[in-house]
Write a protein that binds this DNA or RNA. Structure first.
Lengths: 120, 120
DNA sequence: CTCGTAGTACGTCGGGTGTCAAACTACGGC
DNA sequence: GCCGTAGTTTGACACCCGACGTACTACGAG
């Protein structure tokens, strides 16, 4: 069996269109420390793509999958398969078009808070 | 009994200090449609204060109390008693100091989305 | 004092969230 | 073909969240 399109074999991931992205969903996605960290790391290296395994998260693989899915379904990141890896990238263009300045303000706020916490 | 300081009689509400405000908490507070609406209304009239009953929310009184408490405990609003009413105001000074530009970006994003939804 | 208005506290309830372990699928290399 | 690596799925779990009704408290007006 498993002729075509098992859940994992689909090789095609559902993303919300730009118009479907909801501010509340984005804020909810970013209100989790793990997910906020992921987005910060993603934004740190420009528009580069990173596999899930690139991130050093304090949770198991299955929890990691869950968090990336929340980020994708809220429209914050875009995920594409590349061989056995799943590459993740910020949807900066869509977010900037929908909510100009928001992503930068959020990233700046996160950086500021991280500096305040780590720096004492 | 109830000589002094019952929970309601305290007439003093716990607020986080500026340093205690966490970005994740603010985002979580704003990720609920009812609370986002409250903050938008609060911001619409400058720094004016409004009683809870000023807002026309699609929930009961007890749920309203809950949402205002979430906003207060996350540091988004400040609540003070004024007779039998409880006045609510945005903590714009604290938020702007902690996360410059964030609140304005969030309000602009919310306004933009509201316009897109209502305007078709 | 009594009444009305504004808001709180408490108990409850269904559903969502974040976490894990274990078993599984998909791809690339050998 | 077989194995390892990367990620998924499922089920379970404890906890939190948003909603409600009811009973309650606080203050001001009369």
């Amino acid at each position: 069996m498993t002729p075509v399109a098992t859940a994992a074999g689909t090789r095609e991931l559902p993303h919300p269109t730009r118009a479907e992205i909801r501010l509340e969903g984005v804020l909810h996605a970013l209100s989790d420390p793990v997910r906020l960290r992921i987005v910060r790391d993603l934004a740190a290296d420009g528009g580069a793509l990173f596999a899930c395994s690139y991130f050093d998260l304090p949770v198991t693989k299955s929890t990691t999958t869950y968090h990336f899915r929340v980020l994708r379904e809220s429209g914050v990141i875009r995920q594409t398969y590349r061989g056995t890896a799943k590459m993740n990238g910020l949807r900066r263009d869509d977010l900037d078009a929908l909510f100009p300045g928001l992503l930068d303000a959020l990233l700046a706020a996160a950086a500021r808070q991280a500096a305040a916490v780590e720096g004492g």
